[in-house]
Simulated scan of single mutants.
Amino acid sequence: MSFGVEGLDAMLSGGLLEKSICAIVGTYGTGKTSFALQFAYEGLCRGEKVIYISLEEREELLQATMAQKGWDMEAFDDRFYLLRLDPTDFNLAVSSIKSELPALIESTGASRVIIDPISLFEGLFEDEADRRQEMFRLIEVMRDEDCTLVLTSETSPANQYGSRYGLVEYLADTVVLLRYVRSRGLTEVYLVLEVVKMRRSPHSREIKPFEILQNEIMVYSEASLF
């Protein structure tokens, strides 16, 4: 399942495995949503059906972002399902993701599903044991669906290498970490990524720089960091 980002696909030995679960983990401004949208757009361009669930950005803002990239989303109206859930409405958000999402996947035949960011869903549970249990249940339900799932997650304030609640990286098959690196002279800031893990497939373990341009993401898989 190609991401549509040439350098990242190369690091993933061609892309994500079908019916696998990928977590894109990063702090603010590292491009988590950009990568998620690119994954969705690549699927649409390949004739697939895509469900994009936003727990943060409003639909019109995401649509404006896609339009700015020059993507003609009207051409995909019958195959792209963009939904926004209000994470402050606990019962609605939990019920929609746990109960209604599987039925939506089956009725639409979507092969790519994105939840952006899953960390807001995790944050609905104040008790750590409940959070762990509900996340495990969600992942188990999604493994029975005929789709590839991409989750975005904020990093932990105390650990730039881990997700906010330290769960998704253990539950996911593939983890892509996005972060900032400052040059030795502290004169520049680079965006870098690494494929932390990828079950059942060889992958690059190198840290590579990337840029988010107006209409594409460039991962420099052949470049050295410094």
Rank of each mutant, 00 (worst) to 15 (best):
M198D: 02
F210G: 01
G185I: 01
L83Q: 12
G185N: 15
D77L: 06
E60R: 14
F136D: 05
Q68D: 13
V168C: 02
S13N: 14
S99M: 10
G14L: 08
L177G: 02
V94Q: 08
V5W: 05
R112K: 12
Y52N: 06
K69G: 11
V50S: 08
M1N: 03
E194D: 00
L101A: 09
L171G: 04
A40G: 08
Y161I: 00
R205E: 13
L104D: 03
E145R: 12
V141T: 14
K208C: 04
G70Q: 07
E145A: 06
E140D: 10
P117I: 01
R58D: 09
T187W: 00
K208N: 06
I115F: 04
V189Q: 13
D89K: 14
D78Q: 13
V150P: 04
E145L: 15
V113N: 09
D146A: 03
D173Q: 07
L62A: 06
M218G: 00
A67G: 02
R79Y: 03
E169H: 04
A103W: 07
E194Q: 14
Q63Y: 10
L193H: 12
L186T: 11
M135W: 00
V113Y: 11
G29W: 08
V50Y: 08
Q133C: 04
S153C: 03
S111Q: 14
E188Q: 15
L101M: 08
S156H: 06
I139P: 02
D144I: 01
S96V: 00
P209Q: 11
L124V: 04
I139M: 13
E122W: 00
A10D: 13
L167V: 05
S221N: 14
T152V: 04
P117N: 14
S183C: 00
I24Y: 06
T30W: 01
Q133S: 14
I217V: 07
S221Y: 13
T27V: 10
